[in-house]
């Protein structure tokens, strides 16, 4: 036994050296990949801070030199970028709040109350999990068109509020809240609404926050529906406005295009950095693995 161990050690470098060599290999691989992921961002971000003639002279420069803010000034003064930003913020915030309120209220009833038709209604709601937006947007468009409500915030906000996924997730969560808490409150004469507001909502703050972050991001980045629902530049969201800005204005320079892109992109990057822990754990939870 002892002799065998010695001979193995003689042939291979010690474990620690091997581990360190492997670690260096991994680090090198990661740095190369990180560069590939960073370069498009650093390059275009630098461009957004450079004057146009300097960009033409040295396209691949990765530094914002010479530094200027004129591209951003141009973009903000000559387009409705700021307006679109506020529109997006309003649409995303209102839709998120409405969705949290309506879906959690319905989820509480589905999870904890008995009523005739529940066994039919819950599966009926879950059908929505399998319906993509592309399958419904033509009739929804015709509905808003007939009501003369295209190009309104109502059109942008309302269709995304009733989320089957949110109800499904919250029902799962509510079912795991101990029944004793609820029974004690009900025996003390608390109303159902009070139980929902004072027990269920506070206990589910973490899952509600995660859900709210994803609804907000999803609404902010939504493409197909706002593309057809709001063609008026005063109502547009930034995701669509930005596309139209660069698709319709031919005389927009490279630096200005990138300033517009990052004026829209950077706030969301900061939003992500603030909430990244919740976003990452939310995604990992969604796969049902951990």
């Amino acid at each position: 036994m002892a002799a065998r161990t010695v001979s193995v050690d003689a042939q291979r470098p010690p474990q620690r050296v091997r581990a360190r060599r492997q670690g260096l290999f991994v680090q090198a691989g990661l740095i190369v990949l990180a560069a590939l992921w960073l370069i498009p961002v650093v390059w275009t971000l630098s461009i957004s801070f450079r004057p146009e003639n300097s960009i033409q002279a040295n396209l691949s420069l990765m530094l914002p030199l010479p530094f200027t803010l004129e591209n951003y000034e141009f973009v903000f003064s000559s387009s409705r970028l700021l307006r679109w930003f506020v529109n997006s913020l309003f649409v995303a915030v209102v839709r998120t709040i409405l969705q949290m309120a309506l879906c959690s209220l319905a989820a509480y009833a589905f999870a904890r109350m008995r009523f005739p038709g529940r066994r039919f209604l819950f599966p009926f709601v879950l059908i929505g999990l399998m319906v993509p937006g592309q399958a419904t947007f033509i009739p929804v468009y015709l509905l808003f068109s007939n009501l003369r409500l295209l190009n309104t915030f109502a059109a942008l906000i309302l269709p995304g509020v009733a989320s089957s996924f949110a109800v499904f997730l919250l029902v799962q969560f509510f079912r795991n809240i101990p029944i004793e808490l609820e029974e004690a409150a009900l025996l003390d004469g608390a109303s159902r609404l009070a139980v929902y507001l004072r027990i269920f909502l506070p206990l589910s703050t973490p899952v509600l926050t995660t859900l709210a972050i994803f609804t907000f991001l999803g609404t902010w980045n939504e493409f197909l529906w706002p593309l057809v629902a709001a063609t008026d530049p005063d109502i547009m969201t930034i995701t669509i406005g930005l596309r139209n800005l660069t698709a319709t204005v031919d005389r927009i320079e490279f630096g200005q295009t990138m300033a517009a892109a990052w004026a829209a992109g950077l706030p969301i990057v900061f939003f992500f950095l603030i909430f990244q822990r919740r976003i990452i754990s939310g995604i990992q939870l969604s796969s049902g693995i951990n």
Binding site: L102, C103, L105, A106, Y108, A109, F110, M113, R114, F115, P116, R118, L121, F124, V125, I127, G128, V131, A135, T136, F137, I138, P139, V140, L142, L143, L158, P159, V161, A162, S164, V167, R192, L193, Y196
Partner: peptide, 28 residues
Amino acid sequence: RDAGIAYLFILPFLLLYILFTFLPILQG
């Protein structure tokens, strides 16, 4: 009474769900 309250809780969600998800499938 509890059943009535449950319907009230579900109603706002259900209205929007039927209007913007369920009916549009059939209408489509």
